[in-house]
Amino acid sequence: MAKSRKVADDVMIERLGQAFKDVGFEGASMSMLSSATGLTKSSLYHRFPNGKEQIAEEVLQHTRRFLESQVFPILQGDLPAAKKMALFTSAMSKVYLEGAESCLLNMLSPPRNQANACGQAIAETFHQLLDGLMTVAKASGATDATARNRAEQVLIELQGALVVARGISDLSVFSRMLDRLPAIILQP
Rank of each mutant, 00 (worst) to 15 (best):
S43R: 12
I185H: 09
T40G: 14
E26H: 10
D22H: 08
L178N: 10
L105H: 11
L133E: 06
Q54E: 14
T89P: 03
I168M: 10
N116A: 02
A183P: 00
V71W: 02
L87M: 14
L39C: 01
T146K: 12
G167P: 03
Q54S: 07
R112W: 11
K52N: 04
A81T: 01
A117P: 00
A161R: 06
D144Y: 12
F88C: 01
Q114T: 01
C103M: 09
A2H: 15
G99M: 05
E124G: 08
I122Q: 11
E53Y: 15
L67P: 00
F66K: 11
L39S: 02
A137D: 01
M30G: 00
I13E: 06
F25S: 00
G77V: 09
V59N: 05
Q61I: 13
T63A: 10
Q187D: 14
R15P: 00
A145Q: 02
I13L: 13
A123K: 13
R180E: 08
S34E: 07
E14C: 02
L105C: 02
D78E: 13
S109E: 13
D170Q: 08
T89V: 02
V59G: 02
A117R: 15
D144T: 10
R64P: 03
F126C: 12
A121G: 07
Q187F: 08
E58K: 15
I55N: 10
Q187L: 11
R15H: 05
K6Q: 13
L186G: 04
E57H: 15
A121L: 14
P188N: 13
F20W: 04
F48W: 06
E53K: 15
K138D: 06
T125P: 01
F126G: 01
K41Q: 09
A56E: 13
L158Y: 14
S34V: 05
D78K: 08
A36K: 02
P182K: 01
S140Q: 07
A28R: 05
A8N: 10
F72W: 09
H62T: 05
D144I: 04
L104A: 02
A147L: 08
Y96V: 03
N50F: 15
I122A: 01
G132L: 14
A8K: 15
L155F: 06
R112Q: 10
A137Y: 07
A115D: 04
S169H: 13
A56H: 09
V95F: 12
V173I: 12
R176K: 04
V7N: 10
L16Q: 05
A56Q: 08
A91V: 01
A183K: 03
Y96M: 02
